[in-house]
């Protein structure tokens, strides 16, 4: 019952607001991470570049996802291949852990789908 409400179109405004709030929180946290990285002299950045394939997004959603990834200061989209649906993302705190970084990007992508699409499948709903 609960799952069916959260995947129906009625909950769309709620999901949109929820995604917006989550994104603002994420934005503030990552900004403060970058600020502490800069002001503490012993800290060094551990950057990395990771490729990400996203087959299930429309062009609009892909553009929004690129904008959101670039707005959060620790991640930055460097190159996009629109035909192959592949993008290359630069992260400040990757620390050699490519899979962890990629799964965190996939989490952003899942939450974006949950927030933007009026109807989602039950398994796609992120609480």
């Amino acid at each position: 019952m609960r799952g069916s409400f959260f995947s129906s179109a009625w909950s769309w405004p709620l999901r949109l607001i929820g995604f917006f709030g989550w994104f603002v929180w994420q934005f503030i946290v990552t900004s403060l991470q970058v600020v502490t990285l800069v002001i503490i002299p012993s800290k060094k950045p551990k950057p990395g570049i990771v490729s990400l394939r996203l087959d299930d997004l429309s062009d609009t959603e892909l553009t929004i996802l690129i904008a959101l990834i670039t707005i959060t200061p620790d991640t930055l989209v460097i190159a996009v291949d629109r035909e192959k649906r592949e993008m290359f993302v630069h992260g400040m705190f990757v620390d050699g852990d490519a899979e962890g970084f990629r799964s965190s990007l996939r989490l952003t992508h899942d939450r974006l789908i949950t927030g933007l699409r009026p109807k989602v499948k039950d398994k796609e709903v992120q609480a």
Partner: peptide, 27 residues
Amino acid sequence: AIGSFMLARASYMTGGKPVETTVPDEL
């Protein structure tokens, strides 16, 4: 965000290499 993306893209296309400590560099 658009400005940062365009700058990073231009830097990459004009041959700007990331620093060596960029550990997984799949690009």
